[in-house]
Design a binder for these strands. Structure first.
Ligand SMILES: [Mg+2]
Length: 234
DNA sequence: AGCGTACCTCGGAC
DNA sequence: AGTCCGAGGTACG
């Protein structure tokens, strides 16, 4: 698959050579995935991880490995025991009410929230996103993440600030100075699907990793120039 | 429909 | 040391 992506995009080809050990696009549990990305809005990864681990402590204790405690991610019912104040105290900020509201909304689904989330698997991507967006704190980006990482929607493109940077730099440079707006969300998404096709979401994930200030990538530095689709150097 | 703006918190940059 | 900025967006006017 990487070869296909590399053929489709020169930048992908170059980046792929510099990502050690590959990247994994995990098929996550939908509940866990949803609440993780519910914490992600306007936030940094370190704090997101802290918030997620504080939610996990409401799940069953699994054991201790190498000095680290592990917990099963809480069920929706278990999550419903957490108050907004507890979440505030745990540093969730304004996302505290999103968590409480989404738990409540899920509990009210006929057949339960877990079942409702699973039922989204067999729907079209646009319907999946639309349904998920009815939850408080869930917009198009979070919905796309949940769809891609936990609901088998491999062509979902979560358009976040990083993807926006990538897209305007390499694929649609004419929008370089525009603000990331909902209207342009689809524009970016279309650009990725046009370029990478069925598994565009996976390609997006790799390019996203390339943007992160992470030791996982050792991007080419110093002097090397490349060209984007419009033959502009970067 | 489309566009501005506020929003919790917090580590790093200056 | 104080201030400012921005981070895997969303809700609301
Ligand atoms: Mg929503």
């Amino acid at each position: 698959m990487w070869q296909d992506f590399s053929f489709s995009d020169i930048r992908f080809a170059e980046l792929a050579q510099h990502v050690d050990g590959g990247a994994r696009v995990l098929k996550q549990n939908p509940v866990e995935c949803l609440f993780q990305f519910l914490c992600s809005s306007n936030n940094n990864i370190k704090r997101i991880e802290k918030m997620v681990s504080s939610m996990e402590r409401f799940g069953d204790f699994l054991g201790n490995v190498g000095g680290f405690d592990f917990y099963k991610f809480p069920s929706i019912d278990r999550l419903s025991c957490i108050s907004e104040q507890q979440l505030r105290d745990a540093g969730f900020g304004y996302r505290a009410k999103f968590v409480v509201g989404t738990v409540k909304a899920l509990q009210e689904k006929p057949g339960g929230g877990e079942h409702w989330l699973d039922s989204l698997r067999k729907m079209e991507l646009c319907s999946v996103v639309r349904e998920l967006c009815t939850l408080p704190g869930v917009g198009p980006k979070v919905a796309s993440c949940v769809a891609l990482f936990s609901l088998d929607q491999h062509h979902a493109i979560p358009v976040d600030t990083h993807v926006w940077q990538i897209a305007t730099r390499y694929y649609i440079p004419e929008l370089a100075d525009a603000k990331l707006a909902p209207k342009l969300f689809s524009r970016v998404s279309d650009a990725f699907v046009a370029k990478f096709g069925k598994y565009a979401g996976w390609a997006q994930t790799l390019l996203f990793i390339g943007e992160l200030p992470s030791p996982k990538t050792k991007k080419p530095t110093g002097g090397k120039k490349c060209k984007n689709d419009n033959n502009e150097t970067y």
